[in-house]
């Protein structure tokens, strides 16, 4: 019976299910771009969720309005040579899908086998799976932390792009933050930067160099 399966056994079963995934979904029948890209983009969308890009978008769950990590270029950042995560992607994707399949087993959720197990989950279930992966410890937990961080960095910093070019091109994450535009020469300067008012009394024991006593 499923509830009595140990977590280890469960993950083994789930991993086996994931391993046959490419068999049941030959490239011609596969609806998405690639298992790796779709899985990681769905992960990134769980960290910084966005609106569906088109009717029937399976990758982006559409949990909230506005752009998310996928629109912001998370996939490009995962593959950025300066990030150095690319070699780990196949293993990460397998682990995400194993965890997703395990989740489906314990929650008696039927998975659509035409997409990777993680993509087949709804947003709340994806959030639970990401939370489970991040809860680990040691180096493995650090790795998941890095995977989540890249989604965040894609959205909040456009880490795969030059910032001036990205903000001018209307990068969706930077636009969401309200990141300021640079001067015409691509350099930031803020001539108006201060209220120019005395806004608090100084500490009475401040020294003549402006320091605490």
């Amino acid at each position: 019976m499923i509830p009595t399966l140990s977590r280890r056994r469960l993950l083994q079963t789930a991993a086996a299910a994931v391993a046959v995934l490419p068999l049941v979904t030959p490239d011609s029948a596969y609806a998405g771009t690639s298992i790796q890209r779709d899985t990681l983009e769905a992960f990134a969308d769980t960290v910084v969720p966005g609106a569906k890009r088109f009717a029937g978008d399976r990758i982006v769950a559409g949990a909230t309005a506005g752009p998310g990590a996928v629109d912001a270029g998370a996939w490009l950042l995962y593959n950025d040579p300066d990030v150095g995560l690319a070699v780990a992607i196949p293993g990460l994707v397998a682990a995400i899908n194993a965890e997703a399949a395990a989740y489906a087993l314990t929650h008696r959720t039927l998975l659509d086998v035409r997409v990777p197990p993680f993509v087949a989950l709804d947003f709340d279930a994806r959030t639970a799976v990401v939370g489970q992966l991040l809860r680990g410890s040691g180096v493995v937990q650090l790795l998941w932390y890095a995977v989540a961080a890249m989604a965040m960095l894609a959205f909040h910093t456009a880490g795969h792009l030059d910032t001036a070019a990205a903000v001018r091109a209307g990068h969706p994450g930077l636009a969401w933050l309200g990141f300021p535009l640079p001067d015409p020469d691509g350099i930031w300067r803020f001539p108006d930067f201060s209220y120019r008012q005395e806004l608090a009394a100084l500490h009475p024991l401040t020294t003549n160099t402006g320091n605490p006593a």
Binding site: A63, V130, H156, W176
Partner: peptide
Amino acid sequence: AAPDWYGVDKKLLSQRWR
């Protein structure tokens, strides 16, 4: 509600970044 530092509520917080 969980999660604390990612997800929908975090994205809404970042809309007020300025």
